[in-house]
Design a protein around this nucleic acid. Structure first.
Lengths: 194, 194
DNA sequence: CTATATGTAAGATGATCGTCTTAAATTATA
DNA sequence: TATAATTTAAGACGATCATCTTACATATAG
């Protein structure tokens, strides 16, 4: 294999390993040594790929943005109906139940952590929400042209974030089921109202 | 002043200063030196009052529990109607707008932070939610005896936590206003339904 | 007043942090 | 194959962390 290729591959491997580590440990408790161990790269060598810890975070979030965009594109292709797409979004907490109960939402928990002291890094985590927000706005606009699509999108994000936080607090799977069902009913009531 | 009294007073002063610091910095980035500086107590002396950082956290959360209980008792005294009490609860994000936009919810952000790695400390932060949860259940039970009071209480907690998280993400005061109004409408719709 | 308990203040300790240097090993290029 | 560029791997660096010891000051009690 060409060396250039191998380098890119290792870099990608580090990013993906760190993605998981960041979710499970949080940014402040995730050390350079942790990253090196998890990715099976010598600590000194890690510096060759990323000069600072912030650079790793930047790469991980950029990777997340791509992954999310691809997922949403897949949904656009698979699900022709905007309502079905919105319901698919609302089901994320159900599908990711175990992780959410144990670690909360990957986006929400990161933003909450960075937003306190590392204000400069917070805008990075905000971008993760932007991808979902603009996608949700498109779905609502397409579905209900005369509604306030952005307010509806934010409302959905509010409720899913609340579900993740509270499910994490009480480690309660049923809480997720109940609240997601409630979101479904809300979505359906929107159709009736228009 | 008697020495015993003075000691208790200093201890209390440390707790209250740390309460604020914990909220603004988070647990992991709040060092013993930070606590000492904020409370104006020499670092070495701090150890006399609290043997470990976890002990400080324990004291701060116990202090929060008392403060919250007293606040809810005040509401019980001031507001005779359970619906008014629930609306008062829902207005917390409006009253604490600036803090929430800048630092998120003190309870939610702490639980999210501790829940990842320091699982042993997570149950401490969970207690903060228990106080609100049981109080909310009492209000709903009193107001709507035939409803699932716990599910309604959790739903309210979900939405307020979601508001705090998203208002913090987008630093958006209007988001709070809009979502709290939406909660008010939801509460009123419960009265109509029964 | 004296002795004992309580409170204060500074600094030591070892571990770990993010960052950086450097020299050897490997690979690409000519 | 010889030379240059890239990659690897180990360890040094100063800073800061939570924790602990110790010597000293003050207050309490007999």
């Amino acid at each position: 294999m060409a060396a250039r290729e191998k380098t890119t591959q290792i870099r990608q491997h580090i990013i993906e390993a760190t993605d998981d580590l960041l979710y499970r440990k949080g940014f402040n408790l995730m050390s350079f040594s942790d990253i090196a161990n998890t990715a099976n790269v010598p600590r000194g060598n890690l510096y060759y790929y990323f000069k600072t810890k912030n650079e790793v975070l930047d790469a991980v979030i950029k990777h997340r943005l791509i992954r999310t965009s691809q997922m949403l594109q897949d949904w656009d292709r698979m699900l022709p109906d905007p309502l079905e797409r919105l319901k698919r979004f609302a089901r994320i907490p159900v599908n990711e139940m175990q992780n959410i109960i144990q670690y909360g939402c990957p986006m929400g928990s990161l933003n909450t952590e960075l937003g306190k002291v590392q204000y400069d890094l917070k805008q990075l985590s905000q971008q993760q929400f932007d991808v979902f927000r603009s996608w949700l706005v498109r779905q609502f606009t397409q579905w209900l042209p005369h509604a306030n699509a952005d307010a509806l999108a934010i409302h959905l994000l509010v409720r899913t974030q609340g579900i993740a936080t509270m499910a994490h607090v009480y480690e309660d799977p049923q809480l997720i089921e109940r609240e997601v069902t409630s979101i479904d009913h809300w979505l359906e009531s929107l159709a009736d109202a228009s």
